[in-house]
């Protein structure tokens, strides 16, 4: 399996475990609060771990995770980290509108390619993951390889 896909799949499982740990009835929320807290913590730690791993891959400039447009985890050189969150929210909103009009289904990823850099935005559970790289980086290739072969040993 594609390395990054397998990581996203693990994150998705943790997000689902967290989502399903939440009680269907508000009445039970106190009884299960410790378990919810644990699942949430596992998910958030896994997000931070993935962000840290991704940024060590050669060709990736930065990686960040946002919740409702606010920073949740980041690693690497992320300029204007708050502005990036706002931009991601805006882009996601536009993409969702387009998706509805064009019947694309739920948005899974957005890639914006500039003349110098590019950015990939992916939704994982309640968070949005964002990967920045130079324009020339083949994201599918670098993220698809076994991470050990691509880790930039200089960092």
């Amino acid at each position: 399996m594609h390395w990054f896909e397998s990581q996203l799949s693990s994150l998705d499982q943790l997000a689902e475990a967290y989502r399903s740990s939440q009680p269907t009835s508000y009445d039970d929320i106190v009884e299960v609060s410790e378990e919810i807290c644990l699942k949430r913590s596992q998910f958030v730690h896994a997000v931070q771990a993935l962000v840290n791993k991704v940024v060590r891959i050669k060709g990736i400039t930065a990686c960040a995770a946002y919740h409702d447009g606010l920073i949740l985890a980041h690693s690497g050189k992320t300029p204007h980290i708050d502005a990036l969150g706002a931009m991601i929210q805006e882009s996601t909103g536009v993409a969702q509108q387009s998706s509805a009009t064009l019947s694309l289904g739920e948005i899974e990823q957005i890639v914006i390619v500039g003349a110098i850099n590019k950015i990939a935005i992916l939704g994982v559970g309640p968070i949005t993951l964002c990967i920045l790289s130079p324009r020339d980086t083949n994201l599918a290739h670098v993220l698809g390889q076994d991470i050990k072969k691509h880790i930039n040993l200089n960092t």
């Binding site: 508000y26 929320i29 106190v30 609060s33 919810i36 807290c37 949430r40 958030v44 995770a65 946002y66 919740h67 409702d68 447009g69 606010l70 920073i71 949740l72 985890a73 980041h74 708050d82 969150g85 309640p126």
Partner: peptide, 16 residues
């Protein structure tokens, strides 16, 4: 502090 992380935890804790 990572504002999104703090807010996420806070929002999830409030119902409890």
């Amino acid at each position: 502090a990572l504002l999104g992380k703090v807010r996420f935890e806070l929002k999830e804790t409030i119902p409890v």
